[in-house]
Amino acid sequence: MDAIDRALINRLQDGIAVTRRPFRAVAAELGISEQQVVDRLQALVDSGLLSRFGPLYNAERLGGAVTLAAIAVPEDRYEDVAELVNAYPEVAHNYAREHPLNMWFVVSTERPDRLQQVLEDIRHRSGLEVYDMPRQREYYIGLRFEL
């Protein structure tokens, strides 16, 4: 990753427009061609520095439902419960965290009524309490990392 890659990542976290040639401005700014911009982006995605490049959908605005859920998993059952939780296609992210509530995952469902079914199903199959922590209010979503 060089200075141009860093500039690209910084610049393109804010988004591109819906225009026929959306990389034209950033290419001109960085003094490279549009083809070089997309080649670099592809290389950044291939190497895992970017998880993807594209639209960030807001599941709730698409009529779905999202929540953050947490479980206190006994250490000796951790891998089994992780496998159980991760097997749901509705579970988008799952992080191990250092706290008595040591498993935190995001559940996103297309049909709103499916959300509580998934949580209840996980409670039932794991025998563990699943704490439901839906967003009640969003203060800001920046997601911007200056490199």
Binding site: D14, G15, I16, V18, L44, L49, R52, L56, L62
Partner: peptide
């Protein structure tokens, strides 16, 4: 419905 069309960094890798 789309927040933005953008690069999503894998911050751990960065």
């Amino acid at each position: 419905a789309i927040r933005r069309i953008a690069a999503v960094p894998q911050h751990y890798a960065l």
